[in-house]
Amino acid sequence: MSHSNESNDLHSSMNITDDQILSMLQEEATYEKGFRSLMAKYQERLYWHIRKMVYEHDDANDVIQNTFIKVYRSIDKFEGKSKLYTWLYRIATNESITFINKKKKKSTSSIDDEEINLSNRLKADEYFDGDEIQLQLQIALSKLPEKQRLVFNMRYFDEMSYADMAEILETSVGALKASYHHASKKIESHLRSLAEG
């Protein structure tokens, strides 16, 4: 297949509807094509969602691959009660949290060490090109409880509606609003103290 054909396929996959993808996934003959379409359509959004949780590209790559493998194995369990997009996000979120928890168990560093480590890691990371404010934003985010960090990322960076977030995180809209409020205030405080200090 030529590069232009691949690009056309990718472009058409981006425009394909979820119903068309699910329809292809129901037939053995079109299963792989359907799965390719699903990955092409959602891989970037899911990757960035994961990357913001795990920070490093190699870790994000592992988690996104595990996410898609899980989707491949369990797509027949998708009942269509929620949007395909929110179902995929939920799997990616769960995989990210599982990964983070495993990493925490292996780590022997204190919270302060973690902050220094993250700062050093991001500064040395060739795939992070944020300025000092961006770096401090990530450090402030890393201090939040995981749920608040998830909520902030989904609202602030992914610009997701509270309704979709409620479906993905299986939490009420009111609780999500409160969580976003608390997270934003803490980050604001961290950034202000740096700007004023």
């Binding site: 092409a40 970037e44 990757y47 990357r51 790559n61 691959q65 944020g130």
Partner: peptide, 19 residues
Amino acid sequence: KMAFKVPKGYFDELPEGVL
């Protein structure tokens, strides 16, 4: 803005890796 980047061509290769 997103401060993170990915290696060049990463999203072209990801589906093949998963498959």
